[in-house]
């Protein structure tokens, strides 16, 4: 039930790779469906779409999937403000620093890129940050506390007839 999705994860002919510089691991978006990354680090990335490098209105976004009823939450987007792009490939190095509170949580991150020519790329990957959140221990303590409360409340009490 909690397993990452199986099989290839980018459809539509797009390509993307990222190398996590601290661990030295390289992830290919087409074949990767799970990535466990350090909480703080740098990633050297490159991505491309299978269209000519002409000025066009490509639209896309990256979202994180949360449990029902929250659903998808947007992490980033491009082209939704009407801004056009003229490139079909990009690369760079990105520094990230995630808060310790979200360590250990497995999040499904998915995205899409819609080109005016009809090319539609979609991709998904489960990302987990190394370590354990301090919230996990607080949650465990609260679980034990609420279990004790529950065991007390289900005890019988005398009711006058």
């Amino acid at each position: 039930m909690g397993a990452p999705p199986a099989g290839a994860n980018v459809t539509g002919g797009c390509a993307a790779t990222g190398t996590q510089l601290q661990s030295g691991k390289t992830y290919d978006a087409v074949t990767t469906n799970f990535a466990k990354i350090p909480r703080v680090g740098d990633v050297k990335w490159a991505a491309s779409v299978p269209v000519p490098a002409t000025k066009r209105a490509a639209v896309g976004e990256v979202q994180g999937k949360f449990p029902w009823p929250i659903g998808d939450i947007e992490i980033g987007q491009w082209g939704k403000n009407g801004k056009q792009t003229g490139s079909n490939a990009n690369k760079g190095t990105y520094h990230y620093d995630f808060p310790k509170l979200i360590a250990g949580i497995k999040v499904l991150v998915h995205g899409r890129d819609q080109e005016p020519s009809g090319v539609l790329c979609r991709g998904a990957v489960v990302v987990q940050i190394e370590g354990t959140s301090p919230l996990a221990w607080a949650s465990l303590a609260l679980t034990v506390f609420m279990l004790m409360n529950l065991s007390l409340t289900i005890r019988a009490r005398k009711v006058k007839p």
């Binding site: 949580i105 987990q128 949650s139 609420m146």
Partner: peptide, 16 residues
């Protein structure tokens, strides 16, 4: 809180 535990300890995905 059991649900939170499962998510925070990485036993299940957040969107489960």
């Amino acid at each position: 809180f059991v649900g939170f535990d499962l998510v925070l300890f990485g036993a299940i995905q957040l969107d489960n």
